[in-house]
Simulated scan of single mutants.
Amino acid sequence: MENPVVIISRNPRIQELLRNLDRVIPTQTTILITGETGTGKEVLADYIHQTSDRAPFPFVKLSLSAMPEDLLASELFGHERGAYTSATTEKKGLFEVANRGTLFLDDIDDVPLSIQTKLLRFLESGDMIRVGGIHPVKVDVRLVVASKVNLKKMVDSGRFRSDLYYRLHVYPVQLPPLRDRREDIPLLVDFFNRQFGNGAPIRLDEKVLSRLMAHDWPGNIRELKNVVHRLVLLNDSKTGLPDLPEDFLPFGFSSVSGTDCLSCLIGQEKTFEQVVHCLEGRLIRYAMAETGGNKQQAAHRLGLSPSTFRDKLERVEKGGISIYSSCSDC
């Protein structure tokens, strides 16, 4: 028995999506899931299977991207003995393997036109023909497909069959990117933290969670999962900002150590006073970015009195270094 799939979300759009989907799952309707890479299309397909009456039977999945056309045809529909040189035995395709269950085809937008024709035949008649065969094979399969791009645009450009598109588009589901459901980030972080921590999750510093909340997540949930995995691997109990990948860090944090400034001093590109000025500027930029521009909090963060911080800030700005721009001095 597979572990039950749980969709973790408090986002209203996701919750409405699931409520509507629960009405469609008991039917045999083909479902098209669209969304950016990493938004959880495969997880949703697994949820559809596990909550349907097909759950006791196979859930078979295949990514259609970057697979040679002849190999893809054999993988999906099987082949007869002698269909080609290396076909020494008969082989069942994934449609037959998934009989009575669910077949999930990811990256349907990458499927060649010749395979699209075969998929259309299955959707219209419920049968398929093996490579090298002549007799139709009847299969009982619930088809769920996913696309990372707008299929209608592919239809308009002639790269996707319009008749197949309308067969697949009976019930489309659009998964939003993680940046549009930020309220789910703490829930997902906690889930992955417990998953990778084997029941002993690490403590996440509040500033770490703030950084995770502020990130745009171009890789969506998959990227978040990998970042949390990294944090768990690198820490025994508690995390801090330095444990995050560099592109998550507040501006200037990764170079606050002053390694570049030291290089400037050793290489005699700058005087000692200039290097100190540059390093102070980096520390001040970091503190201001971390506190959202609040000077009192930034002073506290650096362990300075408010008056001392103001003086240093004025000197840095008089020196021509904006606290809101990157450091070009080192």
Rank of each mutant, 00 (worst) to 15 (best):
R194N: 15
A289E: 11
L212S: 02
D190M: 01
F95R: 09
L304N: 01
K41Q: 09
I31Y: 13
A200L: 09
P26M: 09
I266P: 02
G35N: 11
R23Q: 14
E317H: 05
K318N: 13
G293F: 01
K148H: 14
T85S: 15
V232L: 02
V232I: 04
T39L: 07
A98D: 05
V275N: 05
V97C: 01
N20L: 14
I202R: 08
A66F: 08
F272Y: 12
G40K: 03
V141I: 07
D243A: 08
A299V: 02
N193F: 00
G303D: 08
V97F: 03
K318R: 15
E183W: 02
M213S: 07
G35T: 06
C261M: 12
V141R: 03
V5L: 02
R282Y: 00
E36H: 12
D236T: 10
L304V: 02
R13N: 06
N99G: 04
M213F: 12
T29H: 04
G240Q: 11
V316W: 11
L17N: 05
L123R: 01
S322D: 08
I108W: 03
K153N: 12
T34K: 15
V60G: 00
G158S: 12
G101A: 03
L249V: 07
A287S: 13
V276F: 08
T102R: 06
